[in-house]
């Protein structure tokens, strides 16, 4: 009984967010040229590509379920695996709406400590994960 009620509530929330999110992703894919992303996020695009994905992660709306298809789209457009991994991490760590909620309920110091720890760790581990798995992935 309670499960049914929770399911209905969760379904309602998802129904309000996800179709919009996927439409935005579809439009993003239609507008953003592969070459542009390749230039900024491709293999050998350098450290600046990580600034790009932190920015992109920050403006991502919605939970991991929304970030995953965006990451998949980036990967299909030719972004490096380490950069895609960094995007997934950044979208979990520095989403702007989430950060606003966090700082208002747990305080700005809490947010600052989390950023100072998580962002460097996300970037370092993404480079490692990208290098380790790059050649062992199925083609996107």
């Amino acid at each position: 009984m309670k499960t049914g009620r929770l399911l209905a509530k969760n379904l309602g929330e998802m129904a309000a967010i996800l179709p919009c999110a996927f439409i935005l992703i579809g439009l993003f894919e239609a507008w953003v040229k592969r070459e542009t992303v390749e230039k900024h996020l491709g293999e050998g695009a350098g450290w600046k590509s990580y600034l790009w994905v932190i920015l992109l992660g920050g403006i991502t709306l919605g939970p991991m379920l929304v970030a995953l298809p965006v990451a998949s789209a980036l990967w299909k457009k030719g972004a490096a695996l380490s950069v895609v991994t960094a995007y997934l991490g950044a979208s979990a760590v520095c989403r702007i709406p989430m950060t606003i909620f966090e700082a208002s309920y747990l305080g700005v110091p809490f947010t600052l400590v989390r950023y100072a720890t998580a962002i460097p760790l996300v970037l370092l581990s993404s480079v490692g994960v990208g290098r380790a798995l790059r050649d062992r992935m199925l083609p996107p």
Binding site: F22, L24, G26, L27, F28, E29, A30, W31, L65, P69
Partner: peptide
């Protein structure tokens, strides 16, 4: 054209997931 293609792609992805 781009918009229609984008909408179609987004909805297809949504149904897949």
């Amino acid at each position: 054209g781009k918009t229609l293609a984008g909408l179609k792609g987004g909805i297809r992805k949504f149904l897949n997931i």
